[in-house]
Computed example of a mutant assay.
Amino acid sequence: MSDDGPVLIFDSGIGGLTVLREARMLMPERRFVYIADNAAFPYGDWQEEALLDHLLRLFAQLLEEIRPACVIIACNTAFTLAGAALRERFPETDFVGTVPAIKPAAERTASGLISVLATPVTVKRDYTKGLIESFATHCHARLVGSRYLAALAEDYICGIAVADSALWAEIAPCFVEEESRRTDIVVLACTHYPFLANRFRKLAPWPVDWLNPAEAIAMQAKRVLGSSTAAADGGPNHDFVIFTGENLRPETVRLMQGFGLKIAARRAG
């Protein structure tokens, strides 16, 4: 870890921009490097052992090249699978993880009915079930695995039209009615999903709290960094993005420009 290095934000695609947005507001003096592992997107298509090996090899390269002050893994799937292994393999690096916000949802719910909207891989993981057993045994927590929502979010935030019917098909199972009670909180357990939150609100059959973890993740990174020396010349004009895949849509390039991210010439992976 390098105290004066940038903050590395990692995601399988561009959903982690939700975290970058919050991190910039909390730490405007910092430099950020955003890694989009688009060559491997979506992670849900991978076998767990192969994905774990891929992440360990990729981070060995990224940490050597970038020497970050800390790493934010802005991906529930990646962190719940590889977080412990990454911390063991690279003990000198501070990793800030992303996990489903089940604990705060369980603390806030009035009806006792919460839903966790995630990728199928995150839904199946023992880590997620362990969070429910630890913090939400007094609730009915419905796990909703969406196969297509992350890709739909990637399209949407790049300005590509996404039909209401496609979104509703993915979020409809989140809404549960039991006698006089209704789901009142939906945990957005994928960093892609908050970009669609306004669309979700319009489609919802009744109001719910869509729980976005991005601010909490950024706040934890700020705590981890503490009073260490911030990198000079921070700010969007000095931040850059690395894509692990070569094929970038024009819409993606424009989105990166809108976020003030320079696309690095080299590729990771």
Rank of each mutant, 00 (worst) to 15 (best):
G112D: 06
P104K: 12
A150S: 13
P236L: 15
T137Y: 05
P213Y: 01
R199L: 11
Q257T: 12
A85W: 00
D233T: 02
L52M: 10
A141K: 05
H54K: 14
G5C: 09
L225P: 01
G258I: 12
D53C: 11
A153L: 06
V144A: 10
Q257L: 14
R21E: 12
A264Y: 11
P173M: 10
R57T: 08
S227H: 07
I242H: 09
V253R: 15
M1S: 15
E133P: 04
C139T: 15
R254F: 05
G97P: 12
D184T: 13
I171S: 03
V224Q: 09
T122L: 04
A85G: 06
G15I: 11
N38G: 08
L196A: 07
R266V: 02
I66M: 05
A106E: 04
K129D: 01
A169F: 00
V121F: 10
L26M: 11
R147F: 05
T18K: 08
L203Q: 03
R254T: 15
A264N: 10
G145E: 11
E177N: 03
T244E: 01
R57L: 09
A153S: 14
C190M: 10
D3N: 10
D94M: 13
C75V: 00
F200K: 07
S228K: 08
L225R: 08
A78T: 05
V19F: 06
V7Y: 13
T137R: 15
E170R: 02
I185E: 02
L63S: 00
A78D: 00
E92L: 11
C70M: 12
E65D: 13
A150G: 06
Y127K: 09
A151I: 06
C139A: 13
L20F: 12
E29P: 01
A101T: 12
A189C: 13
L63F: 10
A118F: 00
W206H: 14
M256K: 05
A153N: 12
R223Q: 13
T98I: 08
A141T: 15
L81V: 10
D155Y: 13
A82V: 01
V162P: 03
A218L: 08
E246P: 14
V71K: 01
A221M: 09
L17G: 09
Q257D: 12
G234Y: 03
Y43R: 07
G159C: 09
R181K: 10
L17R: 08
I9V: 11
R67T: 02
N76R: 01
N198P: 03
A101N: 09
Y43A: 10
R108F: 14
I35Y: 13
L56R: 04
V71G: 03
A69D: 01
F10C: 03
R266Q: 09
L225V: 09
G159I: 13
R30E: 11
N247Y: 08
L203K: 11
I72H: 00
D239N: 13
V186E: 06
I14S: 13
H192D: 07
Y43S: 06
V116H: 03
T244L: 08
Y156N: 08
